[in-house]
Amino acid sequence: MQQVKGVIARSKGAPLEVVTITVPDPGPGEAVVKVQACGVCHTDLHYREGGINDDFPFLLGHEAAGIVESIGPDVTEVAPGDFVILNWRAVCGQCRACRRGDPQYCFDTHNAIQKMTLAEGAGAGAELSPALGIGAFAEKTLVAAGQCTKVDPNARPAAVGLLGCGVMAGIGAAINTGEVTRGKSVAVIGCGGVGVAAVAGSALAGASPIIAVDIDAGKLETATKMGATHTVNSSVVDPVEAIREICAQTYEGAEGADVVIEAVGRPETWKQAFYARDLAGTVVLVGVPTPDMKVPDLPLIDVFARGGALKSSWYGDCLPSRDFPMLVDLYRQGRLDLDTFVTEEIELDQVEAAFEKMHHAGAGQRVLRSVVIL
C-alpha cells in the first residue's frame, strides 16, 4: 500500500479538503493508476451536496486519464505503463445484456473490491467512497481493471480524460442513443459541456442542420465552433418554432428535427424537445433531472400521433473499450476538438474554486471544464 494526496468531501456541503489517503496494493482484477489529469464534473458537486447518496466521506473526481502503475492477479485488460482513460462502466460479461451482445447496457458493472481509506487526522482509517467508483482527484487511485481503457499514449491527458464522463455522454447521446447519421437534422437544447459534446458528435456523424439552443450567447458561440450550423437563443425566441422553421427551410414539409437532444434535464426543456421533433422523430434525454421532477402535462394522443421514440441516454450508451480508442484517434487526427472543452488547468487545492465557477456559470464565466493536472 502507499499514501498519496486526494480531495475528499467529508460531509454534505462541507468545504473540500486535500488530505492524505491510503491506496491498497491491487488485488485480483484491480489496478492502481497514477492519475495525470481529471476533469471537474457537475456530478462531483452533486456528490458533495449529498445529491447522489450519503456515503460520506467521498473521494471525488472521475473524468480521468493516467498511467497504470500496478495490476493485481488475473488482470489481462491492461499492463503497467499503459496510458488509460478511466470509466465507471466496467462490464461483467455475464449478465443478460452482455450475453445477448449488448455489453453497453451491462446490468452488473463493477468497481474495485478493496477500499481506499483516510490515512491520518480526524477519521483516520475510515473507508472512502470513490465518486462513480473512481475517485481520481488523487495522485493515484485504485479501480477495477475493467475501468481502464488503453488508448494512444501520445494524446493529451487533460483533453482525452474528459471522455471518461461528460464528453462521452454527449457524443454518445447523439451517435449511440439518437442514432444520428448523415442526412438527419439535429437540435441540441442546452449547450453546457454535455450539450456541446452532443453537437460535436452530431457533426462527426454528418448531420445537417445542427441547431444549438441555449439562453447564453457565449455557449452558443462555443457550440458553433464545435459544429452547430444554426443557433437559437431561447431567451429571445420560442425554440420550438425556431427549430421547426430552420428544419422546414432545409427539408420541405419537415415539422421539426429528426433528433432532439435535451441536455438540461428539466421538464420544460424536455417538453420543448418533444414538440420540436419531426414526425417519427427521436427525443434523447441526457440532461440529469432531480428526483422530484415530473414529466410535464402531455396529452397521450400527442405521444401516439407523433410516433418516433422517447429515449434516455445513460453515459451515452457507450462501450468504453469500443468508443474511447475510436474517439481518441479522431482527436489525434484533428477531427474531434477535445481541447476546446478544457477551459482551464488547475491544481488539487483549486477544486472548490472550480465548483464556485459552476454556480456562477451564467454570469459570464463560461467554463466547459476545469481540469486538475497532477
Score class of each variant (00 low, 15 high):
16 L>N: 05
183 G>Y: 05
70 S>N: 13
342 V>W: 03
344 E>S: 09
159 A>T: 06
313 S>N: 05
302 D>V: 11
205 A>H: 06
95 C>W: 06
343 T>P: 05
101 G>L: 14
261 I>K: 05
21 I>T: 00
49 E>A: 08
285 L>M: 15
141 T>Q: 07
346 I>Q: 11
313 S>F: 02
293 M>W: 15
63 E>D: 07
350 Q>N: 13
217 A>F: 02
343 T>C: 13
343 T>Y: 13
25 D>W: 01
196 V>H: 05
217 A>W: 04
358 M>L: 15
63 E>G: 10
128 L>G: 00
221 E>D: 14
360 H>R: 14
309 A>I: 04
108 D>W: 05
347 E>K: 15
126 A>W: 06
171 I>Q: 00
88 W>G: 11
273 A>L: 02
270 W>V: 11
357 K>P: 01
241 E>L: 08
68 V>K: 04
64 A>H: 04
273 A>F: 00
319 L>C: 07
63 E>C: 13
46 H>D: 10
262 E>L: 12
96 R>M: 15
74 D>G: 08
164 G>V: 06
12 K>E: 15
92 C>V: 12
368 L>G: 10
355 F>I: 09
109 T>P: 05
156 R>D: 04
243 I>P: 02
277 R>E: 11
154 N>R: 12
84 V>N: 04
278 D>T: 09
133 G>T: 11
140 K>S: 03
204 L>K: 12
165 C>A: 08
206 G>V: 14
50 G>E: 11
155 A>W: 03
6 G>D: 02
76 T>F: 12
171 I>F: 02
3 Q>E: 14
274 F>G: 05
219 K>T: 01
39 G>W: 07
233 N>I: 03
